[in-house]
Design a protein around this nucleic acid. Structure first.
Length: 289
DNA sequence: AAAGGCTCCAACCGCATTGGC
DNA sequence: GGCCAATGCGGTTGGAGCCTT
């Protein structure tokens, strides 16, 4: 008898490839909504899918994840992509971070199929300067979660260069409130920062956020109590370092999540920040997406 | 109507990085 | 420090649908 037979290579699992069926989408969505993704390699097993974890992750990120914005890009989004691509090159994930609801894949495809040609045409007419930002300014923008002062100042300079659509200067029309764009807000609150690989809250990052957001706290436009579970409390105005960013009547968030900070001196307890997409708040089973 | 070319986009692949042991 | 698995990222591919001839 050969001992070799004892260390046979693992049987290769035949994974399904190609387009996802509505049934597969449904299974993946239901599973993640109920349990969160946790470790991606176990998702297809637990969800009863014959896909590999990588494929599930991609499908979730690019298609199923709540908050995905589909359809045509707005002129503002196009400008943002062109500007950032001019400064950053093919850093699609970094560009995508500045466009809430858009995925790197979508932006990349849009660039290759449309914007690249448009830019080439424009540059024939009037060549653009290679970089519109100084390296240091762009670096600050990219690294904005790390340095709050840099975030605000660099963003404002960024926005001014960008044009009126991203004006952040406090004005009488907004009661002196800083209208920081959701793009940076979403970046600060990126899900990967909020949760560790086990899907548990990362309290250190909560502190990190409280350091980096220095904005006005305003719950006027949101009936937060509606989103708190029974027994939870919050004191409006007491979370001095957390802002609910408002845009007109709407509270704008890119992700739904729960902040529970039991380690810092500031009181942050069971404060739900909710996502508003098409006027529907998204939150289910306290699972964060 | 049919064939061939083109465009767009979802998904795959491979490499780099990260994190745990 | 090395190994390995998981994850993230960017380049590339494949195919569906549209357009042109």
């Amino acid at each position: 008898m050969s001992y070799k037979s004892l260390d046979k290579p693992k049987p290769k699992i035949k994974y399904r490839k190609g387009l996802w069926s509505p049934y597969e989408d449904e299974r993946l969505r239901n599973y993640i909504l109920q349990h969160g993704h946790g470790c991606w390699s176990t998702v297809p097993i637990n969800a009863g899918l014959q896909r590999n974890g990588k494929s599930c992750r991609l499908r979730w990120i690019n298609y199923l994840r709540p908050g995905i914005k589909r359809g045509t890009f707005s002129p503002e989004e196009e400008d943002t992509i062109i500007t950032l691509h001019n400064a950053l090159g093919n850093k699609w994930s970094q560009i995508a971070r500045q466009l809430p609801g858009r995925t790197d894949n979508e932006i990349k495809n849009y660039w290759h199929s449309y914007l690249k040609k448009r830019v080439a045409k424009t540059q024939k007419l009037e060549p653009l300067p290679k970089t519109q930002f100084t390296n240091s300014t762009m670096q600050e923008v990219i690294e904005s979660p790390v340095n709050s002062n840099a975030t605000n100042s660099s963003f404002e300079s960024f926005a001014k260069e960008e044009g009126s659509s991203m004006d952040v200067t406090p004005s009488s029309s907004n009661n002196g409130q800083s209208l920081l764009p959701k793009v940076f807000f979403a970046e600060w609150f990126s899900l990967s920062n909020m949760y560790n690989n086990n899907g548990q809250e990362d309290y250190q990052v909560t502190n990190h956020i409280s350091k980096n957001i220095n904005l006005t706290y305003n719950l006027d436009n949101l009936d937060l109590e509606e989103y708190l579970t029974q027994g939870d409390t919050y004191n409006e105005g007491s979370y001095s370092n957390i802002e609910l960013l408002t845009e007109g009547e709407n509270v704008v968030f890119d992700s739904a999540f729960k902040i529970e900070d039991q380690t810092s001196d500031t009181t942050l307890s069971d404060l739900f920040c909710v996502n508003e997409i098409s006027n529907n708040f998204f939150m289910e089973n306290n699972v964060i997406y």
